[in-house]
Amino acid sequence: MKLGQIVVLWIVTVALSLSWPIGTFAQSKRETAQTVYFASSGNLSLDKYFIDLVVENLGPGFKVKPLPTHSPPSKKNAPIIAIGPKAFARIYRSTPNTVMIGTFVDRQFMDKYATEQNSRITAIYYDVPLLRQALTGKVILPQADKVAILASYVNRNSYGALIEQLSAYGLEGKVFIVADKEQLIPSVIRALSYGDFILGTPDHDIYHPRNIKHILLTAYRRNKILIGPSQAFVKAGAIASSYAPFSAIAEKTASHLIYYRENEVFPAAVYPDAYGVELNEQVARSLNIPLPERPRISEAVDELLEDTLQGVLDD
């Protein structure tokens, strides 16, 4: 072999040896992107809006795709964002060992899945902590000192911790049990006789479309109000409800997914970090209740929570 041929062969060999690691590195880098699937809520507009917010918070290290409907995901252990309780329950039934984060689900729903014992599933709660809802009522009615809570028989023992928390804010709480549908109005009347307002809860046996009209009319006739349990009930006639904005849910969802990529387990299910307030100004006018501005209500609730927490830390 001539010297010129040897030189050419050496140059080609060196070039190949240099290009191989670069290509391999690029391929390896592509493979490190975390694949995430999402299971639809059935509302395509909501799905797109929410997933776009999640993607903005995740950054370029993730690929978010719709969950295949007829075949399992190609990526083993790829986390799934379940949008809504129906999506979560459907995926959990079909693949109980899946890695999944529930969104737009309330704590009562997720309690059935014992997330504390299973680091492969978690959730960002959609409902509002009841203490925050109660303080929303306190900000709207500064003179209020008693909170009434309606509870189905099944959930009658679910509010002990809340009632203990209320005392730090100058509030007392009492639970009124609704044993069956015939007892709804008598229980509401007793609750209204005791409380300055009724605190709505995620108790689906009580707060559903068949009951809400009767609860609200009974309260209205006695010049009392309902706080919560969600934005939907404000439209129906509750005076106010705190709620978690989509952006806050998306931000927390992204942070849980990032944690999973780094640790291969999920952190515990949590509430979002930020809340807004929905108001029914027509109801407020009818009852001659002056309403603070929406942002001021949220800020006042945050201040109450922070002040009490700081007091506990100082002690």
Score class of each variant (00 low, 15 high):
N77C: 03
P85D: 01
P66Y: 06
R120S: 12
D52A: 14
I51W: 00
A87D: 07
V64K: 01
T35N: 10
R93N: 12
K75H: 13
P85R: 03
T95G: 00
N118M: 09
A39V: 12
P68F: 15
E56M: 10
T69P: 00
P85T: 01
A33V: 10
I80V: 00
G102M: 00
A123M: 10
E31K: 12
I121A: 08
N118R: 12
Y126V: 05
R107Y: 04
R107M: 08
G137C: 00
P96K: 15
H70K: 14
S74V: 04
K86Q: 02
L150R: 10
G42Q: 15
F62N: 07
I51T: 02
I149H: 09
N97S: 13
T98V: 12
A89K: 06
I101L: 08
L53P: 02
F109E: 11
Q117G: 04
N57Y: 06
N43V: 09
S94F: 03
Q34M: 13
A82S: 03
P72N: 05
H70Y: 15
P73E: 09
K76I: 05
V105Y: 06
V36W: 07
R30H: 10
R93P: 09
H70D: 14
A114S: 13
A134P: 04
F50W: 11
T95L: 00
P129G: 07
Q143V: 06
K112P: 08
G61P: 11
G102Y: 00
G59M: 11
P72C: 08
Q133D: 05
L130Q: 14
K48E: 06
T35C: 08
D52M: 12
K65C: 04
K48L: 09
T103V: 10
T136W: 02
Q34K: 14
G84P: 08
I51V: 10
G42M: 15
L131I: 07
N57L: 09
L44V: 13
V99E: 09
L67N: 13
Q143A: 12
G42V: 15
P66V: 03
Y125V: 08
P79K: 10
I51P: 00
L135M: 10
I91A: 06
G137N: 01
G84T: 13
T103M: 05
F62Q: 04
A82P: 01
Q143T: 15
V64D: 02
F50T: 14
I91N: 05
A82R: 01
I121H: 08
D47V: 11
A148T: 09
L67R: 11
Y126K: 06
F104L: 15
I149E: 05
S41M: 02
V36M: 07
I124N: 07
P66F: 06
K63D: 15
R30N: 14
L58E: 03
V55I: 07
V99G: 11
I124R: 09
K48D: 05
A123G: 08
V128K: 11
V99M: 07
T122K: 15
L53N: 09
G102V: 02
I149Y: 13
V36N: 06
S71D: 01
A144W: 12
S74K: 00
A39R: 12
V128Y: 07
V55E: 10
V99N: 09
F109K: 11
F50H: 14
L141Y: 04
G42P: 15
S119N: 10
E116P: 01
I51D: 04
G42Y: 15
G61Q: 11
G84W: 03
I80L: 00
